[in-house]
């Protein structure tokens, strides 16, 4: 109950922030985004034609009025239709967001979980050989360009030139060929099989890139905790090293770690997947955004930019809530 109240209060406080974020995004899109007039009219239009298109698109309205119309679009989540396909933006997002989520989730979980495990191990053996090996490998993983990793992994796992030719290079799940007649079991098996065959290599590539950075960050946090007095106290009273690491140190370390993990969620779902989805031909938000940017499909860009901003604000609130759940020193009344 306290948590809920706190969340609502935080949400209320974040309203000015949301105004700011949407205002800046809108400002940038109006003055630096594509102008559709010439896309519609082609070359050499007459001033009358331009004025007419401007009126149709609402470009002649005062800036503030357009901003409020934009706010109305956000609140109703109705950004109009895509210019290139004519499909409603909301229905495009409804299809692509779950796809992005399914692609990002395994990599997100693995890169954080493995990162914490490796960091705990390295911190526990700090200064020794295995710690150094892990840290050097983490630095290596961090330093390689994501684009290179994606291509290298595609060659390694998806072609006969590489190690194994087990996975398709590109594509995503589509309904089974005998769709209307297939049994539920068949459909489930089909989806399960194609899901993993399309998601394994992107996951490996994403984990490869994120793991190094995560491990280094998490290890630094854990090592700092290990030097705290309470660790010595626990040790002096006979608490086992295992319990010190997993109970005492980890819970304290989770305060900064969870903050970092949550704050990467919007990035992982949208921006981080831009490259993955483009290279693996996965029809998620990333690919939709990529195409919208290259085609100047303003309604989609608007929707994605604002949702990212809103997602960030929500992530910030979530961080505060989690922070308060872990750390009793912070009260709900602040």
């Amino acid at each position: 109950m306290e948590t809920l109240q706190f969340a609502l209060r935080k949400l209320l406080y974040s309203i000015p922030l949301l105004f700011g974020v949407t205002f800046i995004s809108f400002f940038l899109m109006v003055y630096h985004g594509p102008d559709l007039t010439y896309t519609i009219l082609g070359k050499n239009p007459t001033p009358e034609q331009i004025a007419e298109v401007h009126r149709d698109l609402g470009y002649d309205q005062p800036f503030l009025k357009r901003y409020f119309l934009f706010l109305k679009e956000i609140i109703t989540f109705d950004f109009g239709s895509s210019i290139s396909s004519g499909e409603k933006v909301s229905s495009i997002l409804k299809k692509s967001v779950p796809v992005s989520f399914m692609v990002a989730l395994p990599a997100f979980i693995l890169s954080n979980a493995l990162g914490i495990i490796l960091a705990l191990y390295a911190a526990n053996h700090r200064g020794k050989k295995n710690d150094k090996i892990i840290m050097v490998m983490a630095a290596g993983g961090m330093s390689v360009s994501f684009l290179m990793v994606v291509i290298a992994f595609q060659i390694m796992f998806c072609t006969s030139y590489g190690l194994v030719d087990w996975f398709p290079v590109q594509g995503w799940i589509s309904p089974p060929p005998n769709y209307p007649d297939a049994t539920t079991g068949e459909i489930l098996y089909y989806y399960w099989y194609y899901y993993w065959s399309h998601v394994t290599v992107p996951t490996l590539a994403s984990v490869f890139v994120a793991l190094g950075y995560n491990t280094r960050f998490f290890r630094a946090v854990i090592v700092e905790e290990l030097n705290k007095d309470y660790v010595r106290t626990a040790r002096a009273y006979g608490v086992s090293n295992r319990k010190i690491m997993i109970k005492h140190v980890l819970k304290n370390a989770m305060i900064p770690i969870s903050t970092r993990i949550i704050i990467t969620i919007p990035f992982v779902i949208i921006a981080g997947n831009l490259v993955v989805e483009k290279f693996f031909g996965i029809p998620g938000v990333g690919l939709v955004t990529y195409d919208a940017i290259t085609n100047g499909d303003l309604p989609i860009v608007k929707a994605v930019v604002t949702s990212t901003a809103v997602l960030y604000v929500i992530a910030l609130i979530l961080t505060d809530i989690v922070y308060k759940m872990i750390d009793p020193r912070t009260s709900y009344n602040q």
Binding site: K228, D229, T233, H248, K251, N252, I255, I326, D327
Partner: peptide, 12 residues
Amino acid sequence: FQEPMTALNPVF
């Protein structure tokens, strides 16, 4: 120990 402020684990 000397430091009662930091010698106990703050989150338990």
